[in-house]
Amino acid sequence: MTIAEKILHRINRPDLLQTLSEELTPSELNSLLLEVFDRRIQRLSPANLLQHYQKNRFVKPADLDVMRLRELETRILQIFETFQFRPVELSPVAPLGSCSVVATADQKKVLSALRGTEVLADATNALALHAADLKKSGQWQPTQPTDQLRLSTIQRHVRTPPVTVAGHTQHFKIGCLVSSGRDTGNFQFECESLAEHLAVMTAVLRDTLQISSLRFRFIQRAGVDQGRLLDRVATHIRQLRKDLSIETDTAPGRQNPYYKGLQYKILITVGGQEYEIGDGGFVDWTQQLLQNKKERFLITGLGVEQLFRLVT
């Protein structure tokens, strides 16, 4: 029996969940929940509020030097913009289901909110929605079939699973790059877009922050042409950028259906310890959102807050 089923059994309303989730429209559910929260808040005193603040693991500020973090963020965004990844200031909330409808994320790991929203848990999903909207509405139109829509952001993310790693927090800043394009054959989008993301990450980590131990690991994932994608992309980038260190893993021990065809990790060594400071790969989100199999989408996430803690 799930926690929800236990609660419904205790209050002797076994059909309540079905009523709320299936019989009410989203608008009706929202109105109902607003009323519920309004009533509960009326019973809350300022002293209770402080107690909740002290107990709630999501609401405390990050323990870092804000001005220096902002300086790092500005430098990173400058690089993103110079490489033509247009910075976007996202809303702190995204449509409910942004992560779990198109990707393999569990909605319970996301802080679901009212009015059809959720607190941003993955900015690359929000950028996918923004890119799909720009394309569908005609606000962005390619002049060449190979043109890419490049967007970037640095955003604070909130995720609900309790953190188990020392130094990690419930909310953290991630720098994101996304490239949206169309399949023009011969993995052209995949080769060009991934090489661009690697060029940006190299400019940030190796050239600006002077982390000499930077390397990338390409991991084969199910979904696209059984390894041809990884082989083609790795060969292309190795020929183009002989200065980059690229490892490949064609038989990973663990499957990850989140990425399609290729996942990549950004690895650095600081103080003798290796860190996975970033992660990315190809996803089919814009294919799903735009209902078009020719759509291609590459995402990269860089742990800006973790990076800040490591390099300062």
Binding site: A195, L198, A199, I237
Partner: peptide, 8 residues
């Protein structure tokens, strides 16, 4: 050149 291979 392309963004993927900038001049240093």
């Amino acid at each position: 050149a392309t963004l993927a291979n900038p001049l240093y």
